[in-house]
Design a protein around this nucleic acid. Sequence first.
DNA 1: CTGTATCCCCAGAGATACTG
DNA 2: CAGTATCTCTGGGGATACAG
Lengths: 130, 130
Amino acid sequence: MEKDSDRICLCPLEGIITTIAKKWAILIISILGHHERLRFNDIMEILGGISPKSLTDTLKELQREGLIQREAFPEIPPRVEYSLTEDGRQLCEAIVPLVRWAEKRDNLPAKTCHATCGFSEGCPSRREGR
Amino acid sequence: MEKDSDRICLCPLEGIITTIAKKWAILIISILGHHERLRFNDIMEILGGISPKSLTDTLKELQREGLIQREAFPEIPPRVEYSLTEDGRQLCEAIVPLVRWAEKRDNLPAKTCHATCGFSEGCPSRREGR
DNA sequence: CTGTATCCCCAGAGATACTG
DNA sequence: CAGTATCTCTGGGGATACAG
């Protein structure tokens, strides 16, 4: 029997993978996937350890790729909210099998996830019933 | 209705993505996915433009991650063959939805694939009936 | 609060020559 | 044939200070 991977070429990934592989990108996407909308400093705190420059750079790239969207409110002090686009949400869906595979490989200790992404309560990997 | 991505945390990817995002890694995996077993210089030719050092580095990393395997034959001149491990093949399977998503996003011009990965005849993206 | 503006560092990647 | 040994360069990423 023929598997999907027998016919597939991984080349289309070349473009997007350089984006989603950037240091914090996946984490940011994951976080936004769980929180719906977040402000700049919220993301900084959750990530814990990222510099404002790195965060700005990453957010801009994700935005340029159409994975997240930025909404600025003309207030003082300024308020800006980030959220996933529809495309970004579809990415999350498309990436599920890959995550499952990675979890299986690593034998997924839930605490590792906690340590890596900084989720304390909200991280799905720490919930029951998986 | 709840989607898979509502519950999933992308953190487990952190480890593997730094490997498979390395410049040539995905391409090599894809190529090995299509050719079963290949020798060092064969890979170099197919990729076209990679330096021996970069290829060596990448192959070693992929091997260390258990995605490909190396078989050396004690002959003169030496012969070494690379192939995907079972884990590597499973990666190919797991990555299919992501590739489909990327193709859809990019509106997949088949020639782009050709240009990127160097497949001339063998590239599935150039076949009919997709 | 939400970012810029600078400066610095180092690992990834290329080019090239050479070896068992 | 299948790499190794060097050298170099670029840019991603961190730290820090400052601005609108």
